[in-house]
């Protein structure tokens, strides 16, 4: 019997190990190599010559002394937090709306998901067109009399990051709606019925039932969306290339341009490590929250 159990375990491992080894080989290797690289002076010259050496914390010191890097770090946080706030608010409102059953609610909810499903690069192209100086947004806003002068959207340093926040929120709202819908359906109907018997108002029901019971699901989806948004790349690359004047540059695009347009591999690696370190902390909180939720 015991040997049978042992062979079963072996069987299970045989199914699982290839994927595990693959992931550890690619991701584990990348992670370790990236960290090592960030302490060296690898650029296109030292890579070809094979004579890169360890330079300690030099790359990190260079980064944190560089006003461009500090601005990019700030951009990344502003972008992520603004997107989170907008997406979470609208995601929750939409989820609450569609938790009611009304004619066509299923179809309409499904249609809403299209903006999330579109490839990022397509959304980037599309919004780049709509943000044009004589594009559709300026045309609508001017004909409604909301603005007199066309807004420069993605070509002005003042509005470029905001424009990308709007676009990314448009993409992310349906995803947040789905996450919140899952959270809402997990709240038992009995609780509401009991409250109704006690004569609770709508606001009271939201305040004292929905909000507290939704909190764990809401928290973990905020963390998850933070992780997805903080590593943004595609949208910036297609719409602005990080410009104008780094105003839409984020850690992902900066790391790319260090490594692959300036061929400063070590500086790019150090930037990626900073990005990873921040995600790692948030990821730990996320895992802590979800496992706690599971336990309760």
């Amino acid at each position: 019997m015991k040997s049978k159990f042992g062979s079963k375990r072996k069987e299970g491992l045989l199914f699982t190990l290839p994927a595990l080894i693959y992931m550890l080989a690619l991701i584990g290797y990348s992670l370790i190599y990236n960290i090592i690289l960030s302490f060296k002076n690898m650029n296109v010259r030292t890579f070809k010559g094979g004579n890169s050496v360890f330079v300690g914390l030099d790359n990190y010191i260079e980064l944190f002394k560089d006003p461009v890097f500090l601005m990019v770090l700030k951009n990344t946080f502003i972008f992520t937090i603004a997107c989170l706030a907008i997406q979470f608010t609208f995601g929750l409102i939409f989820a609450l709306l569609f938790s009611k059953k009304f004619p066509l609610s299923g179809v309409i909810r499904g249609l809403l998901l299209v903006s999330y499903m579109l490839p990022m690069s397509v959304s980037g192209l599309l919004w780049r067109n709509m943000y044009g100086l004589d594009g559709v947004f300026n045309t609508i806003l001017m004909s409604l009399g909301i603005i007199r002068q066309p807004i420069e959207w993605i070509v002005s340093t003042k509005t470029a990051l905001l424009s990308l926040i709007i676009t990314n929120s448009w993409i992310g709202i349906p995803f947040n709606m789905l996450l919140m819908t899952t959270g809402l359906t997990n709240i038992s109907k009995d609780v509401y019925e009991a409250a109704e018997v006690d004569g609770a108002t709508k606001w009271k029901k939201f305040r004292y039932i929905t909000a507290p019971l939704l909190k764990p699901a809401a928290l973990s989806s905020v963390m998850l969306v933070f992780i997805y948004t903080f590593r943004a790349f595609d949208l910036m690359f297609i719409m602005t290339g990080g410009g104008p004047l780094h105003s839409t540059d984020v850690l992902g695009t900066l790391s790319y341009s260090y490594s692959f347009t300036q061929y400063k591999f070590s500086l790019g690696a150090a930037t990626a490590v900073v990005l990873f370190a921040i995600l790692f902390v948030v990821g730990l909180i996320y895992l802590h929250l979800t496992t706690k939720e599971e336990a309760s």
């Binding site: 992902g252 490594s259 690696a269 990626a272 996320y286 895992l287």
Partner: peptide, 27 residues
């Protein structure tokens, strides 16, 4: 199957899913 280190293996997959692509590009 119930594997040795079952939860740790699951955790590896969960964590790797959150990796930023920037981390993989250069290596």
């Amino acid at each position: 199957y119930k594997l040795p280190f079952h939860n740790s293996i699951l955790l590896v997959f969960l964590v790797t899913q959150m990796m930023p692509s920037s981390l993989l590009l250069t290596p």
